[in-house]
Design a protein around this nucleic acid. Structure first.
Lengths: 231, 231
DNA sequence: AACATTATGTGCGATAATAGAGACAGAGGA
DNA sequence: TCCTCTGTCTCTATTATCGCACATAATGTT
């Protein structure tokens, strides 16, 4: 049946599974449905839901269905700052290795926002990329990488198709004259709706060693994916 | 000690507390610190963290500290759609009671975005408010209500101070000529960084019964707060 | 309307999972 | 070197969990 991993707690495991189940349902689940999905007795599901409720991880709609609670976004709001901490070292390494300004960008609506930037040491002239700056997803390597990571659309522009085929996006002068950008999307393929879409990459002047940069960026993606995965 | 609520699961409770602890820490916690905070043996904390890890609720940084994992935002992405479901009925009631277009708006950066709109039944002429439309937080009742709910700032404009003092925001013609808007912020005072900021309100033509609208909006806020709370 | 049927929520013992403690090996740090 | 901290393992008493059964509410059917 279930290969129960050693050293894990059954009750907590079920509780977390419940949160995931509720999250995946679009309109909430009844307690009975949760019990069935978990393969446990209804009474157990009630206790699980009660406990989740006291932590505001779920709420119950007036008709009894279980929905995600306000505690979820409250916790999620802290994810980004912590992700920064985790990403700082690899990003700094990337900047150093590729000798270029390294960044992590995140999709926000139809925009692409620079979330974190590390500049390479020892270069007096460097390409700036301000944290918080936004531009259209369809412009610049960072946004293209994110678009390319999404499932193919009928009306994808050539630049997105290209990036998808290559496994990286490469733009020259799209956001700034004389700047070259390389980026790769970060994150899993199981892109359930709503999970944030990141890309990671570098920008530099035209003297960027592109081959090397691509290698470095991909390496960093592997590294960060590994840090997040560890499942 | 702790008033242990009956019908809740200790193990799950501790696991959720652990998530909250980790979320509140800015740079992650060691397992030992978690154990101490929970008042349990280290071995227990390890088991809890292991279980959370298998669900990607937390990750471990290379130096061993526990950070929020990628599973958190993945789940959080589903919060908004579910919140809509929950809010639909009260919002519809608000539109009907106040005889005006009711909305829920959410802060996104410095913008205010209309998240959900319900129009009153039986009115041929009504003020439209498109879902997804954005404007500055500082403009319009919806945004002002959110700003007023934040801790007071030195440079708050008069409109924000006014709204904070009144307990609601009221604007006339700010976003559209001849339109009147009333809004109240939704949500708790314990506004831990990162939790989304909502406001709820109505817009109508100048013939709006403002007193009545304020009452209806506040009533709806109480209703929704109750739906989310249930802690 | 009265009934049948299904769903929801809550006590109560038997059982099995967890708590808790101690011990141990390895990795750094002082 | 010693000391501290981490991560893992084993073991048993405890107690929290499980599943059953009952009470209640909501629904649908004749």
């Amino acid at each position: 049946m279930k290969e129960k991993e050693s050293g894990t707690l059954q009750t907590l495991d079920r509780g977390l599974s419940t949160i995931e189940l509720v999250a995946q349902s679009s309109e909430g689940l009844t307690v009975a449905a949760i019990a069935k999905a978990l393969g446990v007795h209804r009474a157990i599901a009630y206790r699980i839901v009660s406990t989740l409720e006291t932590h505001a991880m779920v709420t119950r709609s007036p008709d009894g269905r279980v929905l995600l609670g306000i505690g979820i976004p409250a916790i999620a709001g802290q994810f980004m700052p912590q992700f920064r901490v985790l990403a700082e070292a690899p990003l700094r390494k990337l900047a150093s290795d590729a000798a270029a300004t390294a960044f992590i960008a995140v999709a926000e609506g139809d925009d692409c926002v620079a979330m974190q930037v590390e500049e390479p040491p020892g270069h007096l002239i460097r390409v700036g990329y301000r944290v918080g700056s936004r531009h259209a997803l369809s412009q610049g390597a960072a946004g293209l990488a994110i678009l390319a990571a999404r499932p193919p659309q009928r009306d994808d522009p050539e630049s997105v198709r290209q990036a998808r085929a290559d496994g990286y996006s490469l733009t020259q002068g799209q956001l700034q004259r004389g700047a070259v950008g390389v980026a790769v999307a970060l994150g899993r393929t199981d892109n359930r709706a709503g999970s944030p879409e990141f890309s990671i990459g570098v920008v530099a002047m035209e003297d960027l060693d592109i081959e090397r940069a691509i290698r470095c960026v991909k390496e960093t993606v592997r590294c960060l994916d590994g840090l997040m995965r560890r499942a």
